[in-house]
């Protein structure tokens, strides 16, 4: 047990950092985050992966679209570190290019869904009454509308466009987040410290965003880390419908899907994209857990 943040210890044993005075809460959180080795590992891995995807392709001797039909399905070699695909394209290069798309989609679309979901759910849960009922019935309606049809319509009316990808994904992924946040807010609403804040005359937005949301960061972060892989794979389905990345550009979702079809013959084509995908998700998760612990206001309150 060497790498634990103070928060992880039984709450009675307070770590020295928490007892120090005059330290800003952000700096405090940062310190705690830094001590969480898993979170640091996650963060560092994410940074390395992102850098690799953003900068890496410039150093690659191959293009993502560059075919070499004489050299298809080659195993990893000095020339092609991770081998080549069905068109003789360099898998490593395609992974880096695909990472740009997947990381962007995963982070941006999730952020969109997160923002909408949290704000919507918080308002609905806090305000309650008729407004809550109408807002939640809208959520029910959006759940039920046929997604495939919605996506095809989007594409037909607006053409192919990366922004649409975020719209399409954002439109479905925020719903569950909103319901989770709403139920959490509703259970917080009657807690003493919120009643106290209200009696102090604090405005509703301030109460929601300064006092309530920090208290429900846990479920939000956990659900966000569940959303990201869903979003990245959804992107592969959307490109099947013709929305999102178009060949020869690729994404991790599409590479995994392609790899899955050849997993018996050419396992590398699944193994490498799958590994990078998993590594990213594990890292995000470690980072998410660490962040949650570091930002935990209750721990600071103690």
């Amino acid at each position: 047990m060497t790498s634990l943040s103070p928060k992880n210890l039984p709450s009675a044993d307070l770590a020295p950092a928490q007892l120090e005075r005059g330290v800003s809460p952000w700096l405090d959180a940062w310190r705690r985050l830094r001590r969480n080795h898993l979170a640091v590992f996650g963060g560092v891995t994410l940074i390395i992966l992102s850098l690799l995807c953003v900068i890496g392709p410039w150093f690659s001797p191959y293009g993502y679209q560059e075919t070499n039909l004489a050299n298809t399905f080659s195993p990893p070699s000095a020339a092609h570190w991770l081998g080549t695909d069905q068109l003789g394209r360099d898998l490593f290069t395609r992974l880096m290019f695909g990472g740009r798309i997947s990381l962007m989609v995963g982070l941006v679309a999730t952020f969109v869904a997160l923002t909408i979901g949290v704000i919507y759910g918080a308002i609905s849960g806090y305000v309650g009454g008729k407004i809550d009922r109408v807002m939640m019935r809208i959520v029910d309606i959006l759940y039920a509308l046929p997604f495939t049809i919605f996506v095809i319509l989007l594409m037909v009316f607006f053409g192919r466009n990366i922004v649409l990808l975020f719209v399409a994904i954002g439109a479905v992924e925020w719903l569950t987040m909103a319901r989770i946040v709403r139920s959490q807010i509703m259970s917080l609403k009657r807690m003493e410290f919120i009643e106290a804040a209200r009696s102090l005359g604090l405005g509703t937005p301030r109460i929601i965003f300064r006092h309530m949301i920090p208290n429900i960061l846990g479920p939000i972060i956990v659900y966000t880390t569940l959303t990201i892989p869903g979003v990245m794979l959804l992107e592969a389905f959307l490109s099947f419908l013709g929305l999102g990345v178009q060949p020869p550009m690729s994404s991790w979702g599409v590479l995994i899907k392609d790899g899955a079809e050849r997993m018996e013959e050419y396992p590398c084509l699944l193994l490498f994209p799958g590994t990078v995908f998993s590594l990213t998700l594990f890292s995000l998760n470690f980072l998410g857990d660490g962040l949650r612990d570091a930002l935990d206001v209750r721990a600071a309150k103690d």
Binding site: R160, G242, P247
Partner: peptide, 10 residues
């Protein structure tokens, strides 16, 4: 050349 895939009926 650019490449575009569409769902069957589209």
């Amino acid at each position: 050349a650019t490449i575009q895939n569409q769902e069957w009926k589209v």
